[in-house]
């Protein structure tokens, strides 16, 4: 059956509109770095800046040198906190996920209960964290953020890896057990190597979610411990005063977003699987 050419044409137009709508803001974000203030405010909107590299150079100089914001330090904090969260959650999560998958430890309700903790309103955990962290001296520290980010990433990591281990054929592990290997060895030498791609993808998801987190970053840091999201409100157009480059607003968005976009393009569908807690069929 060959579709009607008019319908086909409409479908392509629809496809184009969909792609345009969902990519334009990101394109606009990158474009904004290359514009000067007059171009940001110009009517009609400027799509082709006059001096893109000069404008970008000024913006970057402003962000890194000529303003009282330690952007390099903050970027590094983001990298450290997100990496550490990914590593911690994987380290604790892999064995738990394996146990849930292979032994049905705690039935289905225990892993599901843990999963629901991922979705709890952050304010319910955030206030107690604030109060306890102030006693422990964990406010404004990288460690404090790692703890906070583990609360919602660990349940996800456990859940996703559990479903992965369940799909993994247990016969090789069983063969090893018959040959006298311990369960720990079966996990370490057989299941783990097979699961490595899934573990890496899950770790990257945890990295992305930590990198992007805003609420705890705003709540629990004040100076040395700040990550990029905590700085974003400083760079709202409404906070950028006369004479400061508006491009800085787009620049800070871009340095937060572009690394994540690249990661997501490599993760592809696994992102959807992660966001849907495994409901998406890959």
């Amino acid at each position: 059956m060959r579709p009607n050419p008019v319908v086909r044409a409409l479908q392509y137009i629809g496809l184009f509109v969909v792609v345009a709508v969902f990519t334009f803001p990101t394109f606009w974000m990158v474009l904004g770095v290359f514009k000067r203030n007059v171009e940001h405010k110009a009517r009609p909107p400027v799509l082709f800046p006059q001096d893109p590299f000069g404008a970008a150079a000024d913006t970057i100089r402003f962000a890194f040198e000529s303003s009282p914001v330690p952007l390099g330090h903050v970027f590094l904090n983001s990298v450290v906190v997100a990496s550490a969260t990914a590593i911690v959650t994987l380290a604790v999560g892999v064995t738990a996920a394996y146990s849930f998958a292979r032994f049905r430890t705690g039935g289905t309700s225990l892993p599901f209960f843990i999963l629901t903790l991922r979705m709890a309103p952050p304010i319910a955990v955030g206030l107690p964290f604030f109060l306890v962290f102030r006693q422990l001296g964990l406010l404004d520290s990288q460690l404090g953020l790692v703890v906070a980010y583990t609360t919602f990433n660990l349940p996800l990591v456990i859940w996703l890896l559990r479903s992965f281990f369940r799909e993994l054929d247990p016969s090789m592990e069983e063969a090893a057990l018959v040959d006298g290997a311990s369960r720990w060895q079966a996990l370490r030498y057989i299941a783990l190597p097979l699961a490595l791609p899934a573990i890496a993808s899950t770790g990257l998801l945890a990295f992305i979610f930590s990198w992007n987190e805003f609420f705890f970053a705003t709540l629990l840091t004040s100076s040395e411990g700040r990550t990029i999201p905590a700085l974003l409100p400083l760079f709202l157009p409404r906070s950028i005063s006369a004479g400061q480059p508006l491009g800085a607003s787009f620049f800070i968005a871009a340095i937060s977003a572009v690394p994540m976009i690249i990661l997501v393009l490599f993760l592809q569908r696994y992102l959807i699987k992660g966001l849907s807690l495994g409901a998406a069929k890959e």
């Binding site: 803001p25 974000m29 974003l232 157009p237 409404r238 968005a253 977003a257 997501v264 966001l275």
Partner: peptide
């Protein structure tokens, strides 16, 4: 198209807020 559709999902909601406050 499906690859490009992943891009909004990669952004922090806070970044999206920042971006749309100017858009």
């Amino acid at each position: 198209a499906t690859t490009l559709l992943l891009v909004p999902l990669a952004l922090a909601p806070a970044v999206v807020g920042l971006l749309f406050s100017s858009l």
